[in-house]
């Protein structure tokens, strides 16, 4: 007991300084933190104050605070609206398809590159990173031109093979494939970095021991490399699942044409059009909030499942 009280006073010693004097002591650190704090309070938490207009009938003249409450009217309008199920389906199908392709391919790329020689690997990586640095506008511009009906190289090749020219940008059936596979093209090198880094942490003695025991290289990949990068895979997957409902609207918007809108209209492009273009602020805030809540539910669910299965979790 005595010992405990001694340690207690020992711990308390530095705390005899009041909170105010400790804050004063660290004033320079607060100064370094201040710009970020101000930014977050104004530009991250400021808009959260504005979320209330999802439950109000926002009128510019009245402002956020004095606009009248309407409860869940906008949500009900959205859920019972003509577009709701289409939007939800488009959003989820596009993002699930995207996740299904964009997530495993970089892992495979990393596993394959890891088996090549160091010089070849480095050059291949440098080239595979290139598309990551291309802007979304340029990427979509490249898609539009390469798949153009009149002058696109894809149609030239189709014609060489004796097939009909297709107006891909106006073809609803083509939109999701263009969206997802251009994303794979752009991201497979960059997104492999994290796994390549994780693979460099594999203990070489494991491989030596395994090859002495007669394991083939394929077996060593499956039983040594993949288990080593598993925690990285799980964390990246949870993050990706949490972003499912916020699938890249910038790209969907750029690839959208009047003819493919039936599949390319997703919740976030709808928010942009109804909100910014039509100035329907309250309604689209409600739709955006709904989107954000779906994201959080998905993230928390993925996190819980992973906690149970692999004991890896975000929080």
């Amino acid at each position: 007991m005595e010992e405990m009280s001694i340690t207690k006073t020992n711990i308390k010693q530095p705390r005899t300084q009041s909170l105010a004097s400790r804050i004063w002591k660290y004033r320079q650190l607060y100064l370094l933190l201040l710009p970020a704090l101000i930014y977050v309070l104004i530009f991250s938490y400021g808009p959260m104050y504005g979320i209330q207009i999802a439950f109000k009938n926002y009128k510019g003249a009245l402002g956020i605070w004095r606009s009248h409450w309407v409860g869940f009217k906008h949500f009900i309008d959205f859920f019972t609206g003509f577009y709701f199920w289409d939007l939800l389906r488009n959003t989820l199908v596009l993002s699930m398809y995207n996740l299904l392709m964009s997530f495993p391919i970089p892992i495979i790329v990393a596993l394959i590159l890891n088996e090549t020689g160091p010089k070849f690997k480095k050059t291949a990586q440098t080239i595979l990173y290139a598309p990551h640095f291309i802007s979304m506008v340029v990427l979509c511009g490249m898609i539009v031109t390469m798949f153009s009906k009149e002058s696109g190289v894809v149609n030239t090749l189709l014609e060489m093979l004796g097939m009909e020219r297709v107006y891909f940008m106006g073809e609803p059936g083509a939109f999701r494939h263009l969206y997802v596979w251009s994303g794979v093209w752009q991201g497979m090198g960059w997104n492999a970095i994290i796994y390549i880094a994780a693979l460099s942490a594999v203990d070489p003695s494991l491989h030596e021991a395994a090859s002495i025991d007669g394991a083939t290289r394929m077996q060593r990949i499956i039983h040594i490399n993949i288990p080593t990068i598993m925690p990285t895979i799980v964390i990246t997957l949870i993050m990706a699942v949490g972003r499912i409902a916020s699938v890249g609207y910038e790209k969907a918007y750029l690839l959208q044409t009047n003819l493919n809108v039936e599949v390319s209209e997703i919740i976030s492009t709808y928010v942009y059009k109804r909100g910014i273009v039509d100035a329907n602020y309250s309604f689209s805030t409600a739709v955006g909030l709904f989107n954000n809540i779906i994201n959080i539910i998905l993230l928390l669910t993925a996190n819980k499942i992973s906690e149970k299965i692999s004991e890896t979790s975000l929080f």
């Binding site: 530009f43 938490y45 808009p47 104050y49 949490g242 910014i276 602020y281 805030t285 959080i296 993230l299």
Partner: peptide
């Protein structure tokens, strides 16, 4: 915590636009 929270929840497009 204040910072981390904003990674998962945001005001969204329209409230940011109004701000």
């Amino acid at each position: 915590m204040l910072f981390l929270f904003t990674m998962y929840f945001s005001g969204g497009l329209i409230p940011t636009f109004l701000l």
